[in-house]
C-alpha cells in the first residue's frame, strides 16, 4: 500500500515546488498509471517512493513504513521489497543477464540453489532463458528492458515502480513489457507506471490513472 499525505517537495535553487500538497492512496495489488508531461513531477514522486528523496513536508508511507522516519541503514531493507524499472534500463552491461538478475537477490542474502532457481524462473517468465549467459550490454533495447524487469521481479516485490519503462522501446516491445507488468507476472504486486505516453493507458483494463500537472495531482479514473 502507498499513502502520501500532504507531500510537497522543493529542490534547492528552484523557485517552484516539484510536488505540491500531494495526497494519494494506492491499495495493495492495484495497477496505477502516473501520467503527465515532462517536468510534471512523475520521477520525483517515484524517487520519493523508493527513498532516493525525502519530502520537504508531508508523509510518504510505503507498506506502512514512513520513509521520513526510516533510518538510512534500514532503507536497503525497504528497497528489497520494491522492484524499480527505469527508462534507461540501468543494467551492468559487461555482466551477464543472469548476473544482472541475480544482483537483486544476492544483495538480499539469497544464495546457492535458491538464487539460481529463482533467477532461471524469472528469466523464463520474461523469455530470456536462452540469453542468460550473454553480456547484458549486447542485447537489444527490448531485451535489456526485460532483463531490468526480471531483476525487479526476482525478489517477488510487493511494489513495482516503473519510470517510463517503454520510453526507449518500439511499439511491439513496449506492448510486451506492459503485459509483463500485470497479472501473474507480478504476483499480485502493486504497480505504479509513470508514463507520458497516452497510448499505453488502454493496455491495462481497470487501471487507475493519476495525472500530475506542474506538481499537482488529479485522479482520472
Amino acid at each position: 500500500m502507498i499513502r502520501l499525505e500532504g507531500v510537497t517537495k522543493k529542490y534547492l535553487g528552484r523557485p517552484d515546488a516539484a510536488l505540491k500538497d500531494i495526497n494519494l492512496l494506492v491499495p495493495p495489488g492495484e495497477f496505477v498509471y502516473l501520467t503527465g508531461p515532462s517536468g510534471a513531477g512523475k520521477t520525483t514522486l517515484l524517487r520519493l517512493l523508493f527513498g532516493a528523496e525525502l519530502p520537504t513536508s508531508g508523509r510518504v508511507l510505503v507498506g506502512g513504513t514512513d520513509l521520513g522516519r526510516l533510518p538510512p541503514r534500514k532503507l536497503p531493507l525497504l528497497r528489497r521489497r520494491l522492484g524499480v524499472v527505469f527508462q534507461d534500463f540501468r543494467l551492468l552491461p559487461q555482466q551477464s543477464v543472469f548476473e544482472n538478475v541475480a544482483l537483486s537477490l544476492h544483495v538480499a542474502g539469497v544464495r546457492d540453489a535458491a538464487l539460481v532457481r529463482r533467477v532461471l524462473e524469472v528469466l523464463a517468465q520474461v523469455k530470456l532463458l536462452e540469453q542468460s549467459d550473454v553480456p547484458a550490454g549486447t542485447l537489444s533495447g527490448g531485451e535489456q528492458q526485460r532483463v531490468a524487469l526480471a531483476r525487479a521481479l526476482a525478489p517477488s516485490p510487493g511494489l513495482i515502480l516503473a519510470d517510463e519503462p517503454t520510453g526507449n522501446l518500439d511499439p511491439d516491445n513496449a506492448l510486451m513489457i506492459m503485459r509483463m507488468l500485470v497479472g501473474d507476472y507480478v504476483g499480485g504486486a502493486t504497480v505504479l507506471v509513470a508514463t507520458h505516453d497516452p497510448t499505453l493507458l488502454s493496455l491495462v483494463k481497470g487501471a487507475k490513472v493519476i495525472h500530475l500537472s506542474s506538481g499537482r495531482l488529479e485522479e482520472r479514473s
Binding site: R73, R79, R90, P155
Partner: peptide, 16 residues
Amino acid sequence: REQLELMALVGASAGY
C-alpha cells in the same frame, strides 16, 4: 558510481 547506484537501488546495504 553507476554500479553502486544500481546496487543501492536494488537494496544493497552499505556493508555489501
